[in-house]
């Protein structure tokens, strides 16, 4: 065993010794990722409804928001908020400065939320637009009100259709959350970089981080597979299970 360990190219003992730090990093990563997904998702529902409508003022306004946030790197968005906000005296003097805008965690959360909110809005807009027209007509003909049609027919069916694409968004938000480590936060990658820097290592910290991220992605994939089975069984059985599309949903389209 001893021999085997010494042959192994990574210093496992050192990783084990610092594992509590990595667990802390997992907490930071998961916290930021899922909080921003929850907030961004909550924001996306009304915005997607607006985008799917033909409102003459609101629709273009929301479009500009989603276009801008999907057209620029998350890293730049985060830097702009975290490093940029302090350029202005009135920001530094405002009541938001001390508790929020000078805090890396809050800046990351805000930037991530706005980012995932933009992607989720467009993803949901697509799902809403794909609602079969006849199903909406059937609801109209039954005398269901506009509100009831949205909340009972259009959205429930759009949410289900959006599940496969949303699983990609969740994974890409997790990938994107590494940006937190560039503004001093000790997320998984932050801890990995710290370990490498502290002990002058080439691999240990980064490989541990990679493995941890991999496990999280695996778990997320599993959860979504279950969700798809549960909520998409109303669709026709297909030859292939629900598209396992790994293409990133981050384009501007």
């Amino acid at each position: 065993m001893e021999n085997l360990l010494s042959w192994f190219p990574l210093d496992l003992a050192l990783i084990a010794e610092n594992f509590d730090r990595f667990l802390y990093g997992v907490g930071v990563t998961l916290g930021l990722t899922f909080l921003s997904l929850a907030l961004g998702g909550a924001m996306a529902v009304p915005l997607a409804v607006v985008r799917a409508s033909c409102h003459r003022v609101l629709n273009p306004v929301v479009w500009v928001y989603t276009y801008v946030f999907r057209g620029t790197p998350l890293l730049v968005q985060t830097y702009l908020l975290y490093y940029g906000a302090g350029q202005f005296e009135f920001v530094r003097n405002s009541w938001l400065w001390d508790p929020v805008l000078s805090q890396a965690w809050w800046c990351a959360l805000i930037a991530f939320t706005l980012n995932t909110g933009a992607y989720t809005t467009e993803l949901l807009r697509g799902a809403i637009a794909d609602t079969p027209k006849g199903e909406v007509e059937a609801a109209i003909a039954t005398g269901i009100s506009k509100r009831g049609r949205l909340s009972r027919i259009v959205l429930p069916s759009a949410f289900r259709r959006a599940i496969p694409a949303y699983s990609n968004e969740v994974i890409f938000m997790l990938h994107g959350s590494v940006v937190a480590s560039t503004i001093t936060l000790q997320d998984i990658l932050g801890v990995g970089r710290w370990l490498n820097g502290r002990y002058y290592l080439a691999y240990e910290g980064l490989i541990t981080a990679a493995v941890l991220y991999f496990i999280i992605v695996f778990a997320i994939t599993r959860v979504f597979r279950w969700l798809e089975r549960r909520y998409l069984r109303h669709l026709n059985r297909r030859r292939e299970p629900i598209a396992r599309n790994i293409a990133p949903p981050m384009g501007v389209k």
Partner: peptide, 9 residues
């Protein structure tokens, strides 16, 4: 309706 239009979900 001609196309049934049942709510698929």
């Amino acid at each position: 309706f001609q196309g049934f239009n049942l709510w698929s979900h």
